[in-house]
């Protein structure tokens, strides 16, 4: 019997990797390269195109509309993180640890996560209406606030923010809850013996041990909120004016609405890079501080 040549056996590994290579190529690499291809050309029609170098990139950075949307989106993500992370952790801490209420609480908290994005948008579009929506009507008539998200930019902004908090805080809460549940009992017993108050227990035992899940929660919530599209599109359509026109809404207008594939390509590559860089910064900052 002859043993197969080990180098030939090693080559066989390529065969196993091939399906992944093909599927990644089709779903990610080739579409991305198409975008790169568009971003350096001015396309008049499928047969008529001109190479323009980096012009679209310069324009994407220079256009005031883009800059405004960028600042708007960044501000929105910051507010989302500032509200959802502490709120999610607070909910997780308050959730019961044992007994029948555990499953009740879990289902209640998880409920918003099960609703499709555009349905969330539709629900809130009606819910927040000051004339027929329960939420909007309560705020406008019972609390006497002059509220109308279709007319006032601040009202629109707050509506989108509250909707996102309602939709996605449960994700943070569930992640934090799982993190809290994984803390071994002796940590709490030691805290009891050391006479730690509830706050000290949270600050010195629970919070440090939530670092891992909170890193994930912050990254997920940042990426999602920075790329938010469906909900504001359904609720406000980016308005009033440009008040809730986030980067993705602007981008889709450019690419699908006006069919400016060149500028849209350049724009989306920059968008993509910004998300990557900010995620890298978050991740590094969070893991570094833990060491």
């Amino acid at each position: 019997m002859t043993r197969p040549d080990p180098r030939r056996r090693a080559n066989r590994a390529w065969l196993l990797v091939l399906p992944v290579v093909v599927s990644v190529a089709f779903t990610a690499v080739i579409p991305l390269m198409t975008v790169v291809n568009f971003s350096v050309q001015d396309v008049f029609s499928p047969t008529d195109r001109v190479f323009v170098g980096l012009d679209w990139f310069y324009e994407a950075v220079r256009r005031p509309e883009n800059r405004e949307a960028f600042v708007r989106t960044l501000l929105f993500s910051a507010q989302v993180l500032l509200v959802e992370i502490p709120l999610g952790v607070a909910i997780a801490v308050a959730m019961p640890r044992r007994g029948v209420w555990v499953s009740v609480a879990l289902v209640l908290v998880a409920l918003p996560l099960l609703i499709p994005w555009n349905v969330v948008g539709t629900i809130w579009q009606i819910f927040a209406r000051p004339d027929i929506g329960l939420g909007g009507w309560t705020v406008a008539n019972l609390l006497g606030v002059d509220y109308n998200y279709t007319l006032d930019s601040t009202d629109a902004w707050i509506t989108i923010l509250v909707m996102d908090v309602w939709h996605w805080t449960p994700l943070v809460a569930l992640l934090a809850y799982a993190g809290l549940r994984s803390i071994p009992q002796p940590y709490f017993q030691a805290a009891q013996i050391d006479g730690a108050s509830a706050w000290a227990t949270f600050r010195h035992i629970q919070l440090p041990r939530l670092r891992g899940v909170l890193t994930i929660a912050i990254l997920l919530r940042f990426m999602d909120s920075f790329m938010i599209y469906t909900e504001p599109f359904v609720v406000t359509g980016g308005g009033p004016g440009n008040a809730t026109t986030f980067l993705s809404i602007l981008l889709s207008k450019m690419a699908v609405g006006q069919f400016d594939v060149g500028p849209a390509g350049a724009f989306s590559l920059i968008y993509f890079l910004v998300v990557q860089i900010l995620c890298y910064v978050f991740f590094t900052a969070l893991t570094r501080s833990g060491r």
Binding site: I193, A196, S197, H204, P208
Partner: peptide, 25 residues
Amino acid sequence: AQVFQFPVLYEEMSVYDNLAFPLRN
């Protein structure tokens, strides 16, 4: 005082702060 099967520390604190913790509380 109780010492558990595995070290139960306030991990992000220094040794000094760990020792001081019960008294500070």
